Amino acid sequence: MKNLGYLNIKLKKYLEETKGQVVADLVQLLKGENVNYLDGKTKTDIGALYFEYEYDYLDIAAWATDKNGKIITDTAILHKQKENHINETESWDSFLPETIWKVAIDFQEKHEEYEDWDDVWEEYEEKNINCLNSGFLTAGKKRQHRRRVE
């Protein structure tokens, strides 16, 4: 469990380092910017934005539809890794650093046969969710405060 606690600390630090860019990416998307429109559509054609969250890799996918529900943009993956971290492979492109992913998977493979494994893994995942929620809520509140000041 100690290894999993360490991973949560690393994840929290990583989220703190990247939340400004994630918020900026979300703001651009909400403004209809930095997306590839299909069939000559523009941001004025947006009727709804859809977001999908991939929990395992922390990726956020988004796309827009028009008022009739037709998809009018390519799917955008927010804040993919723009550069590899130390010890990461060239093909790794998820938001979650590969080093955290590998350690978590290795830990899971070594311990999943234990009787209380499900409880341990559930607690780890719950802490991950709390880290994510806390990080994004804090970023949103800071952004909201800055807008009031401006």
Rank of each mutant, 00 (worst) to 15 (best):
T18P: 05
R143Q: 04
T44G: 05
W101Y: 14
W121V: 01
V22P: 03
I129R: 13
I71Q: 15
D93P: 04
Q21G: 01
A139N: 09
E98S: 04
Q21I: 01
Y57S: 03
Y50A: 06
G140M: 13
W63K: 08
D74Y: 08
H145K: 15
F95T: 02
C131T: 10
I60H: 03
K43S: 14
D59H: 07
F107M: 00
T75E: 12
I71W: 07
H85Q: 10
E83W: 02
T65Y: 07
V27R: 12
E17D: 15
I86K: 07
C131L: 08
N87G: 00
F107E: 12
H111T: 15
E123G: 02
T65A: 10
Y124M: 02
N128G: 11
I72K: 08
A62V: 12
A104G: 06
W121A: 09
N34V: 08
D106H: 09
V103A: 14
E123L: 11
Y124C: 06
K82I: 00
A61R: 12
V103H: 06
D25P: 08
G47M: 05
K127D: 07
Y55K: 08
N68T: 14
E125A: 06
K127F: 00
G69S: 05
K41S: 15
T44L: 12
E112M: 14
T73L: 05
E83C: 03
I129N: 08
E115G: 01
V27W: 04
D74I: 04
A76Y: 09
S134H: 13
S94A: 13
A24C: 03
